[in-house]
């Protein structure tokens, strides 16, 4: 069971801009996501880590059908549902749901919680009034909110409560996969833990599969079975969470782990300003991390490293010509 791929992304690519303008001149194009191939197995939590501009949110929007890949396929449970989503999003939405980063902005300020939560029940499941009432109380119970909150408006809720409503909405249609796009980064630290614990409980209770996107390494480490690290639109390292965090192979993963603040540790990073991403309109031919990489050689500048297994471990892959050795 655990090995069956629920979602498989094959060479997905998303280009913004491009094409030609009125006078036939080429418009500049940005590759937000490039050549991303990854599988999400049934019942696992796949963490996706990366900094701003690495394409992780674009990837998330493509998985739920809010955006369409310009090349490649995203196959859900054997069917190319994402291609179908262009015609009928509802079919995909019954299977794959999304939790937004900003809990308050994702709730319509002029609707009661009841109206917000009933929308998927009406439009996706077509439940009648009685069945909706039963499902609503189930949902509120699942995210630990009192049923009397149903008739309130979003502004009456704290960030943590609003995010639990966002989770309840994602759960409403009884999906198999939930994409969580930075679900706790807008929350206070004490509330983060509440939401993470609820997510953990729901996963076991309903047999869910998560794609968990975050820039916060420690959060991703604590929730993920497998982790993919993205940089400049590509996956640079992927593998079991423990393996990636204990023995990072790609120099970028290494840098990320060194930079992450942790209680009781002083930073080891220099103060030099070399954190610039390459120009997205004029990407380098080789590895995008080359300019910042302490291990880079001419080879890295000339050719693009492929994502491949390092030192015999098939499950742990990195896109680097000179990966770090296992410590």
């Amino acid at each position: 069971m655990a090995d069956a791929a629920l979602l498989s992304i094959e060479k997905a690519e998303r280009v913004f801009g491009g094409g030609r303008n009125l006078f036939g001149r080429a418009r500049p194009a940005v590759h937000a996501v490039q050549d991303v191939s990854i599988e999400v197995r049934r019942g696992e939590t796949l963490g996706i880590v990366g900094e701003s501009g690495c394409g992780k949110s674009t990837l998330a929007r493509m998985i739920v059908g809010l955006d369409a890949p310009t090349a490649g396929r995203i196959v859900f449970d054997g069917r190319d549902l994402v291609a179908e989503a262009g015609r009928d999003l509802r079919r995909l939405s019954r299977e794959v749901q999304y939790v937004f980063q900003d809990p308050v902005a994702s709730l319509n300020p002029r609707k009661t919680i009841r109206t917000i939560l009933e929308a998927p029940l009406i439009h996706l499941l077509g439940l009648d009034k009685q069945a909706r009432a039963a499902r609503l109380s189930e949902l509120m119970d699942a995210v630990n909110l009192a049923p009397e909150f149903l008739d309130r408006y979003p502004h009456e809720f704290s960030g943590g409560q609003a995010q639990r409503i966002g989770i309840a909405r994602a759960l409403a249609a009884d999906p198999k996969l939930i994409v969580l796009d930075e679900p706790v980064s807008a929350l206070d630290v004490s509330v983060q833990a509440q939401v993470l614990n609820i997510l953990d409980g729901l996963k076991h209770k309903f047999g869910l599969t998560y794609v968990f996107i975050s820039h916060d390494l420690s959060v991703v480490e604590s929730v993920s079975d497998r982790v993919a690290v993205m940089y400049f639109g590509r996956i640079v390292e992927v593998g079991p969470g423990r393996s990636v965090f204990r023995h990072p192979r790609h120099p970028y993963t290494h840098l990320l782990l060194q930079s992450a603040p942790a209680p009781g540790r002083r930073s080891l990073v220099s103060d030099d300003a070399t954190a610039e991403l390459p120009d997205p309109y004029n990407p380098p031919p080789g590895c995008a991390f080359h300019a910042r990489c302490p291990r880079g050689t001419d080879l890295c500048n000339a050719r693009l490293p492929r994502l491949e297994a390092v030192s015999g471990d098939e499950s742990h892959q990195a896109a680097c010509f000179h990966p770090h050795e296992r410590r």
């Binding site: 809010l66 937004f100 994702s106 929308a119 439009h123």
Partner: peptide
């Protein structure tokens, strides 16, 4: 805004999003 995306994922049609949301 995000709540429009959320409504789309809740299965609402364009006309419904426009006039209800």
């Amino acid at each position: 805004r995000e709540f429009v995306d959320a409504a789309r994922l809740s299965g609402e049609s364009n006309a419904q999003i426009l006039f209800i949301e």
